[in-house]
Design a protein around this nucleic acid. Structure first.
Lengths: 332, 332
DNA sequence: TTTTACCATGCAAGCGCTTGCATAACGAGC
DNA sequence: GCTCGTTATGCAAGCGCTTGCATGGTAAAA
């Protein structure tokens, strides 16, 4: 069987507690003893049993990441997975492991088990998972939402993209390229979702004085975006640019323009949120608001570790997205 | 603090071991005692400490999933993330949790820690992680590769897509639609990758007697695919259909055809591997070989749990992909 | 030299649970 | 009525590590 701390202690001729101390480095150990212990560890290829360690120390040595399966797309969505990647990196650097749990309806259970069975020291989860009932059980347990809650944001810890800012720089970019009548096209099943409101707010802020604006809602499918764009573009006063809140809307818009004989970017400009790989390969490639998922994950993890140290709640952070310029806004 | 098994025992007026037994259900307990214990558990809102349980029982109650960060795309790749989702579901159904670890160069460390520190009872990893040195350390530790190793496949446990079969049904589909001169277009940085060889094998198998075949290698970028397709389509004897091994190749092919005034599907047919969301939204939408990532994940997890029961190695399983018909093969 | 102080290590009691063995209780068999 | 096999539960020794406290030893202070 694998070597234990005891074995190491025997071989080194010291007490187990001494081995423990050199392992944890929190006590002063004489250089010679340390040497001997280290040598014994090396020789026995000793690896501490994290289970025993956790039990004795009361620290699980792991954090939990909850994915919301209700949002089936979460896993198709590079956004979340890529963040997970960064989170894991960060945790690993801190000597922590990462446990994942899916959820949706059942997520309450998965999350509860993770926490109540003391498998993790902290939790990263989508705000949708944090229904009040669960939160009550988890009170005083370190957590961070990956995404801004739609309500009472101030009461929670969260990290999110600065959607308002993203929309604003998108519109400003369009304006700087000479587009004037800019429409917002997009939406989702939940058109009242907070992030959409925030984007629209930024969008409105960026519209030049006295210019028209359009808030065009779709159901999130390219087909619907196509229809809505068609209708809009055939109106007498139509936009000359679109801010799209998803790549799907981009597909619909491109199709509509093609059918109407409108050129992107000559006649119509377009900027899309969510810089999925696809955006670079549409025809024309779409200028996009890009989310730095690595940064997002890192910041989230970092905030969680802070919360794990000092259990003070109410941290927020907005990550500024950036604009990636492609052909769809290169009006000549 | 949270209630312990002892607390429950006291409240129920029984010995801790009895509580443990009703919890694990492996012993015969009189109905009355069970009732009393259950009531106490309920009343105290008791949740077993999984750490203590694991330490005492020698079972971590978790499996590890290793993502290979060298393949940065792994996380962009719905393929792997979606499998992870299914794996987690399966594990959860078995009462297990899932730990994830990234890797690349450092993956040796992450994996080693997971195993050597006894955090997991089994491991799912990409074959690229399983370099001999690591495997030696892990000998007799339950694992399954998610993906067929390029060499010595028989020696390992793995689950993979049946790439040969996928290529075969793709070609057969093209033939059934009236295409005759079919080319294989695609590749990757590692053009000797096993899965490509297997696809090409299936492709060749499907080519009708006496017809020509083309094995066109690209570097994996759409740009390169475009160039290669251009060159090929301008040759005197050119293909009338393509089997693409990635959506990126599809982008390149579409562009080439458009420039040459060739219609897909009238003049050129196309089937692509990897049914990324993008494939449904190209113009025209691409007929694709679809990987059932859910099934892939489930089968992988299932195999791992089998390996964890009876440590016999050498299991393999191929998951048959299916063909999703779209416009790119609808020759009239 | 004696006292004071500290430094490095040993000691042992847990952390919360599992589990092999012992035991009391009980009905059945002779 | 006595022994024997069952059955349901108790007992206690761990699982491998951490950590507060005790202790021996050495250097600085007196």
């Amino acid at each position: 069987m694998a070597a234990t701390l005891q074995d190491v202690a025997h071989l080194a001729g010291v007490n187990p507690s001494t081995v423990s101390r050199v392992l944890n480095g929190k006590s002063v150990i004489s250089p010679e003893t340390r040497e001997r212990v280290l040598a014994a560890i090396e020789k026995l290829d000793y690896h501490p049993n994290s289970l025993a360690r956790s039990l004795a120390s009361g620290q699980a040595g792991a954090i939990g990441v909850v994915l919301d399966a209700q949002d089936v797309g979460a896993f198709q969505n590079p956004f979340f997975s890529a963040s997970q990647f960064a989170i894991e990196q960060y945790a690993q650097d801190q000597g922590y492991h990462v446990m994942v749990a899916n959820g949706g309806r059942k997520s309450g259970n998965a999350v509860e088990r993770l926490v109540l069975e003391r498998k993790v020291d902290g939790l990263i989860m989508p705000p949708s998972t944090g229904h009040p009932e669960l939160l009550k059980k988890l009170i005083h347990f370190p957590y961070v939402f990956l995404g801004q809650p739609d309500e009472n944001g101030d009461d929670y810890n969260w990290v999110d993209i600065d959607n308002e800012y993203g929309a604003l720089i998108a519109v400003e970019h369009l304006v700087s390229k000479g587009y004037r009548r800019i429409a917002y096209l997009g939406g989702s099943q939940r058109s009242d979702a907070g992030f959409i409101m925030r984007r629209q707010k930024g969008y409105l802020k960026g519209i030049p004085e006295g210019e028209l604006h359009w808030l065009l809602a779709t159901d999130g499918t390219p087909e619907n975006a196509y229809e809505v764009a068609m209708a809009c573009l055939q109106g007498e006063q139509h936009p000359d640019a679109f801010l799209l809140d998803d790549n799907m809307a981009g597909i619909g818009l491109i199709k509509a323009c093609r059918e109407l004989g409108l050129s992107i970017p000559q006649d119509i400009g377009a900027v899309t949120f969510n810089n999925f790989p696809m955006a670079a390969y549409t025809d024309p490639p779409l200028t996009a608001i890009d989310i730095n998922t690595g940064l997002l994950g890192t910041e989230t993890a970092q905030m969680l570790f802070e919360c794990m140290k000092e259990a003070e709640a109410g941290h927020h952070k907005l990550i500024k997205p950036s604009l990636i310029e492609r052909e769809s806004t290169q009006k000549k």
